[in-house]
């Protein structure tokens, strides 16, 4: 029982961070039909912004996180939309996908070039205290990671459903033409989506880097897992991405303990194949028709 509880907590904590990145996939897809294959690198990069704040400018951790958030909003939000998405989108989804793959490589190699290829220690933002509950060791860091991720995704859901701007964003995503006729500034709404994605990536980066360490190659695994999570949960639903992320985090840990540590990385892919065969729209996704 204690072991199950332990696996569940570790899995949910890791899965909630995957969910943050997966939500970014779904947001960008809904807002601008962008499949961002640089999403893993979007999560990798802000950790280095924070480290630059601390090591180059000598700022305290919390101020460096704000600096990282600011730079992420600017580079991963505004600049990404203006310099990559807007020029490429008129040429179709495929060129944009290729452009994001290229962007991911560029970001990875740039970090390697300017910051180094070795992993960097990243300071934990939560206490390293461990509590023993019902025989399981529950770390404050895991619980805090889970809470922060849930708050971020819950807050996003509330923002999208309860505020005027959020509803305008949803309207822009569902039918940009009609939304524009109704007076919604669609371009601005799409920009908001990119900014939210950058903010979520920053939160994921700050939460996961103390565990994974900050390294230029972190995006490879994270991007793939988040992409799978988004498909498993449902690419067109935020709550789907949340469920997908949590599910993959838990399955990964369960399979490593009870099936095989060697094949743990294959488990999410097996899950992906099963979902595509049985429920192509994902667990919580809705089927989308397309005119051909």
């Amino acid at each position: 029982m204690a072991e199950l509880l332990q696996i569940l907590i570790s899995g949910l904590a890791a899965g909630s961070i995957y969910a943050l990145a997966a939500v970014g996939f779904t947001l960008l897809w809904q807002a601008s039909q962008t499949i961002n294959f640089a999403q893993g690198e979007f999560v990798m990069l802000p950790a280095f912004f924070v480290l630059i704040g601390m090591t180059v400018f000598g700022l305290p951790l919390w101020l460096s996180i704000f600096l990282g958030l600011g730079l992420a909003l600017l580079i991963l939000g505004v600049a990404f939309k203006r310099l990559i998405v807007e020029p490429m989108l008129p040429h179709g989804t495929l060129p944009l996908v290729i452009a994001t793959i290229a962007l991911g490589l560029l970001m990875k190699e740039s970090v390697k070039e300017f910051y180094g290829a070795t992993a960097q220690p990243f300071p934990p933002i939560f206490p390293q205290t461990v509590y023993h509950i019902a025989g399981a060791s529950v770390s404050v860091q895991d619980i805090c990671n889970l809470i922060v991720s849930m708050l971020a995704i819950g807050g996003l859901q509330l923002f999208l459903s309860r505020t005027r701007t959020g509803r305008c964003m949803q309207a822009s995503a569902q039918n940009p033409g009609v939304a524009e006729i109704l007076g919604v500034n669609v371009k601005r709404m799409v920009l908001y989506t990119f900014l939210i994605n950058a903010a979520l990536a920053t939160i994921a980066s700050v939460l996961i880097s103390p565990i994974y360490l900050a390294k230029f190659s972190n995006g490879e695994t994270l991007g793939l897992v988040a992409f799978i999570a988004a498909i498993v949960g449902g690419f067109n639903q935020i709550r789907g991405a949340l469920v997908g992320g949590l599910l993959i985090g838990v399955i990964d840990n369960f399979s490593a303990v009870y099936i095989s540590a060697q094949y743990r990385s294959a488990m999410p892919l097996i899950l992906l194949i099963i979902i595509i065969l049985l429920r192509p729209q994902g667990l919580l996704g809705t089927p989308e028709g397309r005119t051909v």
């Binding site: 696996i7 570790s10 899995g11 890791a14 994974y212 990964d252 840990n253 303990v257 540590a261």
Partner: peptide, 14 residues
């Protein structure tokens, strides 16, 4: 056993 460059060691440690 674990894989090369593994990032999450929670299951191994458990």
């Amino acid at each position: 056993p674990s894989e090369q460059a593994q990032a999450d060691f929670s299951a191994d440690v458990l």
